[in-house]
Design a protein around this nucleic acid. Sequence first.
DNA 1: CGTTCCATTGAGATGTGTCAATTCAAGTGG
DNA 2: CCACTTGAATTGACACATCTCAATGGAACG
Lengths: 257, 257
Amino acid sequence: MNIPAKTVGESAVTRKCTHDYRVSCGNCRLNTLCLPLALDSADVERLDNIIQRGKPLQKGEHLYQEGVAFTAVYAVRSGAIKAYRVTDDGREQVTGFYFPGEILGMDGISKNAHACSARALETAAVCEIPFSHLQELSTQMPDLQRHFFQLMSREITEDQQLITLLSKNTAEERIAALMLSISSRNARRKLSATQFRLPMSRIDIGNYLGLTVETVSRVFSRLQKLEILEVSNKEIKILDLDALKEIANVHVQEEDE
Amino acid sequence: MNIPAKTVGESAVTRKCTHDYRVSCGNCRLNTLCLPLALDSADVERLDNIIQRGKPLQKGEHLYQEGVAFTAVYAVRSGAIKAYRVTDDGREQVTGFYFPGEILGMDGISKNAHACSARALETAAVCEIPFSHLQELSTQMPDLQRHFFQLMSREITEDQQLITLLSKNTAEERIAALMLSISSRNARRKLSATQFRLPMSRIDIGNYLGLTVETVSRVFSRLQKLEILEVSNKEIKILDLDALKEIANVHVQEEDE
DNA sequence: CGTTCCATTGAGATGTGTCAATTCAAGTGG
DNA sequence: CCACTTGAATTGACACATCTCAATGGAACG
C-alpha cells in the first residue's frame, strides 16, 4: 500500500493494471444491457474508443461527488454503486442503487455539475464515458443519440415509480418492491432471480425507501416468518415469489370506480 | 361552433384559428424559459417550423394518456397541466404539475409510449414538438441536442428532489416546499412570487405530496394561523417568505456529523 | 480478541390516515 | 335570482403504522 501515485503520472495510474477489466465494449458480457441498440461493429468500436476503464473502486470509494464538475457518465461493470444526495439540513438521501450494465451520472448534465454523489457499496469496476465525446458522437450516430434519450427517459420513469412507492405504499410493499427490482435486475444479467446477496446495508435500504432501519429489519423478520423470504443478514432467498409480488402492490382484485 | 372539422383537411383543422395562440417561438414571451440556450434566429426558425400549435385544451381534457404511442413532447404556453400515472391497484399518483414555459412528456421516450397521462387543470395552450423531427434536428444542431439532454436531466434531478421530500419530510415541510416551488416558478415568469391562485385541487396536492386531503387542509390552516400564509380556497398569499423557507427544510442550524 | 459498526427486537410516543359530519363554492334549472 | 345539487374543503375524534429511544446480539476488521 501507500503507493506514491502522484509521482508516476496520471495515465500510468489509471492504466497500469492489465487485468481483465480492460475488456472492450465489443466483447463485454454486458453490452446488451448498457448498449441495447443495434450499433454495428464499426460504431461500437468508435464508442469503445472514447470509453475509459479505470482501476476498480474499493468499497466506500467515491466515483464522483455532488457538486463537482460533470464530465462523464458511468456504466457499472461489476459490483454495485449507490447514488445519494445530502439535504440542506445535512441528512443523506439515497437516490438509487446501480448494478452491472446500468448507467449513472446523467443527473449531472443539466447543471454541468453532479447533482448527487456516487460511492461503491463493494469493489466495483466502472466504464467512464466522457460526455463531451458522447455528445459529439451522438450527432454523428442518430441511434446512439436515441439510445441516450431513452436511457435518460428510463431514469425518469424509474424515479417516478419510486415516487409512487414512497407516496402510496406501506413499508412492507416498499421492501417487497425493492426485492423484486433487485431480483429482476439480477435475472437480466443471467443471475439467480431468487437468491442473492444485498450489497447495501439496512440503513441504505431504509434511507432509499424512506423508512428507518428498525422498520426495515422488522419487515424482513415478518416476511421471513411468513416464509416469503429467507433472510440471513445480507443473503436473501425468495421463497415465494408470487406472494412477494402480491405484497409489492398488485393486490389485483380492487376498487369500484 | 360546430365546425365540421373532418371535412376541411388536417392542416386547416390545426391552423384555422388565428387567435394569439398562433405565435411563433421567435416572438413567444416564454422562449427564454423553454429554449434557454442561444439558438441563432435561423435555428429558432427551423425549430419553429416543426412545432404544432393546436387549439387550447379545456379544463379536464387530456393532452395524452398513459400507454398511447409517444410522438411528441409538449411545452406549456398558458394554463397548467398535471401529469399522473395509475398504479396497478387503480390509484392515481400525480407525478408533476407543469406551468407555462415548462416541458413535459419526456418520460415517453424510453418505451415509445407515454408513461403517464397529462390533463389540463385549467384551460391551457400547449406547443407540440414532434419528437422524430426534434431528434433529427438535434443531430444537425448540437446546441439543441445539448438543450434536450439538459431538460431531461433537469427532470431527473427534480424527481429526485421530490423523492427526498417524500422520503424525509413532514407534511408541513412538503407543503411549504411546494408553495415555494410554485412561487419561484411564478417569479421566473415575471409574476408575483407571493400571491397566486393554485390551479390544482387539494386532492391533487395531497396526491402529489403523498398526503391525504385532510392533512393538506390542516397544514394550510396551521400555516394560516401562524400568519405565514393567507389561504382563501385556491388563492394563496405568502405573508412570511422566510418562515416558509425555514419550514420547507433549511432549518440551517443542525447536526454534528 | 477487542472494537466498531450493523442488525434485531421491544416498548412507548407521535404524525398522519381513516371515518364522519359540516361548511363552502360552483354550476344548473326552475 | 333563488333553491337545489354536487363536489371540494375544512374540522374533529380516534386508530394505527411507523418513528424514537433503548438494549442486546452478531458480523466484520484490524
